[in-house]
Structures are given as C-alpha cells and as structure tokens.
Design a protein around this nucleic acid. Structure first.
Lengths: 207, 207
DNA sequence: ACCTGAACACCGTTCAAGT
DNA sequence: ACCTGAACACCGTTCAAGT
C-alpha cells in the first residue's frame, strides 16, 4: 500500500526545486569531500550548495546517507567487477582476480580522505551499521574469495571479511602522507603474500 | 645553564600539593582511559581528580602529553624487551623474536580504546608528531627487524616502520568488537606470514 | 606559584517562523 | 511541502579572579 508511494517519492521527488536542491547538495558535498574529506562541515556543504543547513539535514538525515548518496552506484560497479573477475578466474587464475579486485577496492577507499574511518563499522562482523548499499558487493567478494580458496590459490584458514577489514585498515594507516597510496599498496602486497602462503609444516606463524 | 633547572623542575615539582594534583590527575586519567578510551573528556578527568579543568591543562598542555604521562615507562620497557629479544635471536631464532615483540606491541596497543588512533601520526614517516618518548623503542625495533632480515628470516624488501604501522592499523580495524584482540591476532599472523614469505620465482604478489 | 570555573569559541543539529 | 537560519546543546580551551 504505502511501499510503492515511498519508492516513488525516493526515486523522483515531487517538486523541481527539491530535485535541484538535492543535486546541488550532492555536487557541493562531492566538492567538499574532495577538498576536506568526508568529515567536511555541514555548514560548508550547505553554503556551497546555496541552501540552508536545514535543507541538508532534510535531504540527508545523517552523514552516512550523504556519503552513500555521493558514492552513488560505486558499490554496484564494484560488485559487477567482482562477478566479472569470478568468471575470469578460469583463464587468469583466482589469485590474480583477487588482487585485481582488491586494487579496485583500495582505489575506492582512496576516493576521499576519511573513507577508511567511515567504512570501518560497516566492515565489522556483526556489522554495526545497517549495511550501506554495499551488501551485494560484500556478497560478490565472498564468492570471489571462496573460489580462490577452493582452487587452492589462498589458504583456507582466512575469512573474506577479514581481508577487507585489513585492506581498509592499511589504507587508514598511511592516510595523510604524500605517498599514501604507494605505501598502502606495499603493505597490501605483504598481506596478500601471507594470504597465499601455503604452510608446509603445519606450524602457524607467530608465537 | 637553564637545562638542569628545567630538568629538576620537571622531575620533582616544588610544592607538595602540586605533586599531589599531578598524581591525582594521572590516576583519574588512567581510570577514565580504561573506561572510555584515551578520548575521555577533560572535564570528566578533572572531576574525577577533584581539580578544576585549568589544573589539568596546566599540568598537561595537550592530550598527547597526558597519554604519554599515563603510559609512563612503557616505551622504555618495550625497548628493553626488544634488546633482550635481540640477544635471544641466536638461540630462539630471529623470526620468533620478531613475533614475540610484536605480540607485546599489540598488547600495548590494546591498553586503552583509541590508542591506535593516538599512535598513527607518530608512526608516520616523516613523523608528524614530535616523537613521544618512543624514539628509543622504535630504534630498538629497527635493530631487531634488521637482524631478522640479515639472518634471512624475513624478506628484505620490507621496512621496519611499515610493519609497526600495519600492526597498529590491524588493531584499529577490529577495535570495539568483543573479540577485537583475537581478530587482530589473526590478521597480524597473516601479515607476518607475508613477511617471511620467500619469493621463489621473483614475481611480486598482486599486480 | 598555583588553582578555579565561568566565559569563550566552535561545531553539529533542531525547529519555529516564513514562503 | 519545503526552506531558512537563529537558537540550542555540547565540548574543548583559555584566562581573569581568587588563594
């Protein structure tokens, strides 16, 4: 009864000026995020958009919803890439598919300053956040990861969500430095070598 | 001329009530950190200590100095442990020494909530913070790490500071969950396997 | 000298008034 | 319905007044 109405309202707001405000807010937020990271002050975003702060809060009740709206269909794209790479496993190998996708994921994390912090609760298990439109992506990653395990490309005693959390964390570790991306890549390569390390003696690393 | 005076003043404040206030502030801060993490509000710390907020700021101008004061000689202890383990390399092996020390480091990071965030700038290179009394520890870690590289226990294309940043980040990734320590241990073990992974074909992991 | 806590500055969010 | 921005709540820091 009310479900279709809500869907319609969310998809296409009634008035033209409301759509225009939403568009302006998204553009302003993207610009502010690019310059100051996802923690850019609401007042600045509203000022850039030429609207009052109240309008910002009316359109996007909390920061997560604003960030997600700016991100748009990025998570869908990442899911599609994961599915595409799953098909490519047969020819290119499961490990290559894994690292290729994680490069894309790392690139996504580097979009704005503060993305790693923003995503941390979402990647926890059980997730603290309601999943922010990235459920499908996470599921696709799980499939890709499981395939790599089944093909013997990576060790079996690792969990898919762990790796995402770790990649996110390694990005966080280097943020704010001029060579952040380069250093995060290096740390990720190290982690991935650990992931494909095959134990020959049954002894766990560490203690 | 003025250096000895300053040292004397820092070591033993003139008045008894000043020493008492400092002691109370440290006890209160430790308690507040334990309950609410290192970001515990100054007002709460002052209230617990039974002093005004101004007294807190007089004794500890910024939060980093308060955290470091509460930490006390922990960094010296960690440095001593690193030196001790350096001597033990001959008998127990360099890799075991490395992982043992990193376990201690990880344990240190778990002392209070928010420790990872607090330490991140300090572990950057070039360090953003003035080194917070952990220079000696970092130097000792460098020695332990170099020894492990020379003995062939770990790969040569890794940097000591990288690993510390990564271990810090992996702790950050799991903080706030009931099984944070356990999960951080698991991720660290993965990273360490990557660290001792010896390339047999010259091909780097990932692209 | 040192301590106090009101005052100040700042920032995120809400909501009464206006269109 | 939606928009505005002053008002509110909150929190970290400072500093004039007091001891």
């Amino acid at each position: 009864m009310s479900a279709p109405q809500r869907a319609t309202l969310e998809a296409a707001p009634a008035r033209a000026d409301v759509r225009r405000n939403r568009r302006r807010l998204l553009d302003a937020a993207r610009a502010a995020f690019t310059e100051g990271g996802v923690d850019a002050p609401p007042s600045e975003i509203a000022r850039r958009a030429g609207v009052g702060v109240g309008t910002l809060y009316r359109h996007f009740p909390d920061r997560a919803s604003l960030v997600d709206a700016v991100l748009g269909d990025r998570y869908d794209t990442l899911r599609d890439e994961a599915d595409r790479l799953l098909d490519a496993c047969a020819t290119s190998g499961a490990f290559a598919a894994l690292t290729t996708w994680l490069d894309l994921f790392a690139c996504h994390l580097a979009l704005f300053q503060g993305m790693a912090d923003s995503l941390r609760p979402t990647l926890l298990e059980p997730a603290v956040d309601a999943a922010r439109g990235c459920d499908a992506m996470l599921a696709a990653w799980d499939r890709l990861f499981t395939r790599a395990q089944q093909s013997g490309a990576i060790r079996r005693d690792a969990r898919p969500r762990d790796i995402l959390r770790a990649v996110n964390a390694l990005r966080w570790a280097t943020q704010g430095t001029p060579t952040a991306t380069q250093e995060a890549d290096r740390l990720r390569a190290l982690l991935l070598d650990g992931l494909r390390y095959q134990h020959t003696d049954g002894i766990r690393a560490g203690r």
